[in-house]
């Protein structure tokens, strides 16, 4: 995953609360291998009619090139499915700005280079801005004279900027992990399952 610090792109407004991961990516698409791409499946049942045709009025259908989404509170609540993030990323979305995020979604997003930017109040002008610039160094979203700060966990911010791979990082601590394991086997032998 590549790190990034600044992104400018077109904005689409999804003025809804509780856009849960079942809506972002319906369960029936979860068996798809990632290599096939998840972009077409994003919000599948929300942006299409029963025949599968795109609803012309739906914001993302009107703005297929949007890379920044503005939404309401509790975005990405529900299931831990990372495929909801794949659907956003594969559709070209880099930033979601919302009043709040599901905890698991936010972690999944950062693990895929997608910024979950929390803006508690004043979302409406951002949604109407057309195009926005998002800066990870300053935690600022701007469009012309409009400037709004967003919040993000400090560890998540560092990870997005650096594009680090956690497994590589953790493996630097292998000695500490091994020592911890040895001590735990001593102090809590029952933490290893009895041969059933």
């Amino acid at each position: 995953m590549a790190g990034w610090t600044r992104h400018t792109g077109e904005v689409a407004l999804l003025a809804q609360d509780n856009l849960d991961t079942d809506q972002l990516l319906p369960a029936r698409f979860m068996s798809t291998p990632r290599s096939e791409g998840y972009g077409d499946r994003l919000l599948y049942d929300v942006r299409r009619d029963e025949s599968g045709a795109l609803l012309p009025g739906f914001p993302l259908n009107r703005q297929p090139n949007a890379s920044i989404l503005v939404a309401g509170r509790n975005f990405g609540s529900g299931s831990s499915r990372e495929a909801a993030v794949y659907a956003l990323v594969d559709s070209g979305i880099r930033v979601v700005i919302a009043a709040s995020f599901g905890d698991i979604f936010a972690a999944n997003a950062v693990n895929n280079g997608l910024l979950p930017a929390t803006v508690a109040e004043g979302l409406a002008p951002l949604g109407a801005a057309g195009s926005l610039t998002v800066d990870l160094q300053t935690c600022e979203i701007s469009a012309g004279a409009l400037r709004v700060r967003f919040t993000l966990d400090e560890g998540q911010r560092t990870k997005l900027i650096n594009g680090w791979d956690d497994i590589d990082l953790t493996q630097h601590h292998q000695d500490e992990i091994t020592a911890f394991r040895t001590a735990r086997r001593q102090s809590a032998p029952w933490a290893w399952p009895a041969a059933g």
Partner: peptide, 13 residues
């Protein structure tokens, strides 16, 4: 609960 990237991390470490 965790997502797929974290599952991979737990599997590996």
């Amino acid at each position: 609960g965790i997502g797929a990237t974290e599952v991979a991390h737990v599997l590996a470490t």
